[in-house]
Structures are given as C-alpha cells and as structure tokens.
C-alpha cells in the first residue's frame, strides 16, 4: 500500500516531464508502425518490437534486416553500432540506476535517449521517491512508443495528417536539455566538446556513420584534458568560498 502511494505521487510528478516525449513518440512510433505495415508486416510485428527493443533507430533498421537474407550476426553487429551511444548513458547512470530494487532492471532495459536525458537532468521534487520517479518516466515513454507503433501498425497507410515537421519536437527537447545543462555547469568544456566534435564529424564521416567516430573523439578529448579539468575544479571551489 505504502509503495502504491509512492508510485502514484511519483507518476504525477513525472508526467509533465514526459509531455514532449508523448508528442514525439506517438508520432515517431506511428511512422514506424506505418513503415512496417507498408513493408508487408502484420500489426503485431511493430507491437512486439516496440515492446522488446525500445530503441527507435535500431527498430527502423531492423525492418531492412527482416526484409533481407537471414544473417543473425550481421543483425547483432548493426544493432551494436547504432546503439553504441547507450554505453555512455550507462557510465553516467552507474549510481542512479542502482539501489532501486527490481526497478533497476527495467530502468536499464528502457534507457533510450529520451529516458536517459529526462532521468539525468530532471530535478526530482522533494518527497518524491527517486526510483519510482525514474521508473514512471521510463514506463510512460515506453508506453507512448508502443501505443504509436501499434496504431501505425494497425491503421497503416489509412492515416493522413498534416504532421510534417512534428519530429522536430525531439530536436527541441534536446536543445532545451542542453541549455539547462549549460546553465547548471561552471565549466562548459564538455558541452562544447560534444557539440563541436559532433558538428565536425558529421560532414567528415556522413550522417550514417558519424556517431562512433564522434564518440571516440569525445572520449579521447575528455581523457586528454582530464588532469587540467580536475585541477581546475578544486581551484574553482576555493574561489567560491572567497565569494
């Protein structure tokens, strides 16, 4: 009973944070469902995949894998490449996604770009259980995605909306999270490194291949500047004390 109450208040606190994801996911999920539908798959395929994979770009690529010859190892390799960025999320969540009991498993299972970004950056109100809050964010996102994919898979090509451009909601979400992070940090080195390296690698390696070189470059730059950044931190702290 106590747990149920905790979950209820956490769900209420989490919902507003997921509204942009709601707008983005039912739309993208539906696009995915329609894509599977017109590629000749029955409605339960997108439903099954949105439940078990829950990683947008990998699911889109999986449609092509399913249409080609049977090559399970290639499917595994392609998925690892597309989703390699999750490794960074895991490293950042080592503390937060622990100590929440059985919820930890689901939190890690559902760690897509959006769940990670919200759970990392949201300021959880006082009195709200952290574990239930992050669980609610992940569950709501998962549900929106499933709901969109199911609708798209069932109604397929009948759906016509003037929704062109709605996918920008995800770009807007990440811009806002980037600004929020920027205003919280004293040192913008890492933010600038991510943005700059991304912008540099995109034209060099092309839209489909730039993420892995960009991740490696970010890792190299952050490793190379580790000691100067660390030395700066205590210096900054003592300066704060004087002020």
């Amino acid at each position: 009973m106590e747990e149920k109450k905790k979950w209820k208040s956490a769900l209420k606190a989490a919902f507003p944070h997921t509204i942009p994801i709601f707008a983005g996911f039912w739309f993208l999920g539906m696009t995915y469902g329609i894509y599977m539908n017109v590629s000749g798959f029955r409605f339960w395929y997108p439903m099954l995949m949105s439940l078990t994979v829950f990683a947008g770009s990998a699911e889109f690529v999986a449609v092509n894998l399913l249409l080609g010859a049977f090559q399970p190892l290639e499917a595994l390799a392609v998925t690892l490449m597309i989703n390699a960025r999750h490794l960074f999320y895991g490293l950042s969540m080592l503390d937060r996604y622990r100590g929440n009991g059985w919820k930890d498993f689901y939190l890690i299972f559902g760690m897509c770009d959006e769940s990670f970004s919200i759970n990392y950056s949201a300021e959880i109100p006082e009195g709200i259980d952290r574990g239930w809050f992050m669980f609610s964010v992940t569950l709501l996102n998962h549900f929106y995605w499933f709901f969109g994919a199911a609708l798209g898979g069932i109604f397929g090509s009948w759906i016509r909306f003037r929704t062109e451009g709605l996918e920008f909601v995800m770009t807007a979400l990440f811009v806002v999270i980037f600004i929020e992070q920027w205003s919280k940090e004293k040192n913008h080195f890492s933010s600038l490194a991510g943005l700059g390296i991304g912008l540099l690698c995109l034209p060099v390696f092309g839209a489909e291949n730039f993420m892995i070189p960009a991740m490696l470059a970010v890792l190299a730059v952050l490793t190379f500047f580790r000691s100067p950044l660390k030395r700066q931190e205590p210096a900054q702290r003592s300066r704060d004390k004087k002020e």
Binding site: R85, F88, Y89, L91, S92, Q181, S191, G194, L195, M211
Partner: peptide
C-alpha cells in the same frame, strides 16, 4: 570521472544527432 563529464558532451552530440538529416 567519465560518468561526470560525459553527459554534457552527450547532450551536445544528441542535438547534432537530431540534425544529421
């Protein structure tokens, strides 16, 4: 250290990722 400094870089990368098309 990586867990602390990666997220800001990741948010920057995600903005670029959204604009890759």
């Amino acid at each position: 250290y990586l867990g602390k400094v990666l997220p800001p870089a990741v948010f920057g990368l995600l903005v670029v990722y959204c604009l890759k098309g």
